[in-house]
């Protein structure tokens, strides 16, 4: 039905310019902005030093609970540290690991996916074999081994997470490249004698950016949960640096008596990851290259 096709393309416009916001997207972007501002200005927002114990004020409940005070709005933990300050500082590690981990992962994954998809043949087979091997090894085991051997700094954590999580990017990018490679403008680029590397950067990469952005957004959420998991297991960034995962682990023993110790970091993780996932979903609807003409 060619007629309808023409009608549809006649009004197709540049996709990025067409990112009209939906209600969900506005809420998600709002929550994310708050978290990012919180992480940047943690020193100004947090009322207390996050790791400063105050044994006289141990296990103080949040202010709206019976026995709560305005001195500690969200209460204190088992060592009397201010929960609000700890949550605010904890967002730093979550976002740092999430964002930088994804940057490392997407760079590695995109490069490998582009090469595998574009070159094809034996190179593709070998690279995809690496991907599948990596997927087959239990990740937690990998983290424990690597972190146990190399120590536990924040930079190292980001690099390790990036080096293990690139496989999703590689697979998706490779798939996209295989389909884009079939489009005539790629052959046109060969026909004018363009260098392969220029073809990849100019014509293929921009056309796979949409899916990369979508996976990246979702992956930030995944990595934030991963970081929390590792901290919970004691493998993440070490104290005195505050992390939500560590807070969860600390709160575990007090779940029955002081719910806020575990619940508050849990709420933070959920809010942040949910808004990222919804944002990713919305981006997918908007950026999906398959909905192009």
């Amino acid at each position: 039905m060619a007629d309808i096709h023409i009608l549809a393309t006649g009004r197709a416009s540049s996709r990025l310019a067409d990112l009209r916001l939906s209600g969900v997207a506005i809420v998600c972007i709002g929550i994310l902005t708050i978290f990012i501002l919180m992480a940047i200005f943690a020193a100004f927002i947090a009322p207390y030093e996050p790791s400063l114990p105050d044994l006289r004020a141990r296990l103080a409940p949040p202010m709206w609970n019976e026995g709560g005070t305005t001195a500690h709005i969200l209460g204190t933990d088992h060592l009397g540290r201010d929960m609000l300050s700890r949550l605010v500082y904890g967002s730093r590690i979550a976002l740092l690991v999430g964002f930088f981990g994804v940057i490392v992962a997407s760079l590695i994954g995109t490069a490998i996916g582009l090469i595998a998809g574009f070159v094809g043949g034996a190179v593709d087979s070998v690279l995809m074999a690496v991907v599948n091997t990596l997927l087959a090894v239990p990740n937690t085991l990998l983290y424990i081994t690597v972190l146990a051997v190399f120590g536990q700094s924040l930079t190292l954590l980001i690099i390790v997470i990036g080096c293990i999580n690139w496989t999703t990017f590689a697979r998706v990018v490779r798939g996209e490249v295989l389909s884009i490679k079939q489009r005539e403008f790629i052959e046109a680029s060969r026909a004018i004698g363009q260098r392969p590397i220029v073809t990849i950067i100019r014509h293929i990469l921009p056309n796979v950016l949409g899916p990369i952005i979508v996976i990246a957004t979702m992956n930030v959420a995944m990595l934030i949960i991963l970081e929390a998991t590792l901290s919970f297991l004691g493998l993440g960034v070490q104290p005195p640096t505050v992390t939500w995962g560590r807070m969860l682990a600390d709160g575990r023993d007090y779940v029955a008596t002081a719910w806020w110790l575990a619940a508050l970091p849990g709420v933070m993780i959920t809010l942040l990851t949910l808004s990222l996932i919804f944002l990713g979903d919305w981006l997918r609807d908007r950026l999906d290259t398959r909905s192009d003409q």
Binding site: T9, R183, E184, F185, E187, A188, S189, R202, H203, P206, N207, D292, Q293
Partner: peptide
Amino acid sequence: YASLDPRY
């Protein structure tokens, strides 16, 4: 429709 890169 396919022979021109839509992004340029």
